[in-house]
């Protein structure tokens, strides 16, 4: 399967996790990485180009840090512009039907903060409901987010390399259709227990 990673980070020069993650992504064969802020520094998104990209891939990923429980602005702009009536939804809007969609997110808060008892009150998956519903309305299969919590201290604690290795495993499994899609749809996060969703040879 062909994978499209739409990457959004407005201050890449300060990024500790997303930059190495994006660089690792760019090196994987069969994966297209689009740095949205580099391509549209003035936020003027080329709708036709983006729609062509969507049509030539089977898996769509939003890769970004979590900003106010959502995506950085350019990804919202991207949704508003690219997911047109008649293309992504509505009459004749079936261009995205059957594709797989998920978020690859870094979150500053600790995992424990993302629950009813924590200060964030909702789980990450709950906070992403608007995106999940957008994917659903476009007929896409939504998977649990691939997430790194406590990302502000990941560098100091040496957790980045393992995270990148997990990411590479996920992409490779998706690419060769060895990821258990059914299980992945129901999880809280994709990288909770990779062995459970990767089939045979990727374990």
């Amino acid at each position: 399967m062909r994978i499209l990673v739409l990457f959004a980070h407005p201050a890449i020069e300060r990024s500790e996790v997303n930059r190495p993650l994006a660089e690792a992504t760019a090196r994987i064969e069969g994966v297209s990485l689009v740095d949205l802020y580099a391509e549209y520094p003035d936020l003027r998104i080329d709708i036709d180009r983006e729609q062509e990209r969507l049509q030539s891939h089977d898996v769509i990923v939003f890769m970004h840090p979590l900003y106010w429980y959502s995506t950085p602005a350019i990804l919202k702009e991207w949704q508003d512009l690219v997911l047109e009536y008649g293309f992504a939804y509505g009459e004749g809007g079936t261009a995205l039907a059957g594709k797989i969609f998920f978020n690859a997110i870094t979150a500053g808060g600790a995992e424990a903060a993302y629950c009813a008892q924590g200060y964030n009150q909702f789980t990450l998956r709950q906070l992403l409901y608007p995106i999940e519903q957008t994917a659903r309305l476009c007929g896409m299969t939504y998977l649990a987010p691939f997430a790194l919590y406590s990302s502000r201290t990941a560098y100091e604690e040496g957790r980045i390399e393992a995270h990148i290795a997990d990411w590479q495993r996920v992409l490779s499994a998706l690419r060769h259709e060895r990821l258990d899609i059914e299980t992945a749809r129901g999880l809280e996060k994709l990288n909770g227990d990779l062995d459970a969703i990767l089939k045979d040879s990727d374990r």
């Binding site: 508003d80 047109e84 009536y85």
Partner: peptide
């Protein structure tokens, strides 16, 4: 191309009225 909206506003064009009923 669809509803005589200003083409510069293509991206923010709402779905046709009555779309929700369907």
């Amino acid at each position: 191309r669809m509803q005589q909206h200003d083409r510069t506003e293509r991206g923010w064009t709402p779905p046709p009225k009555g779309y929700v009923d369907a």
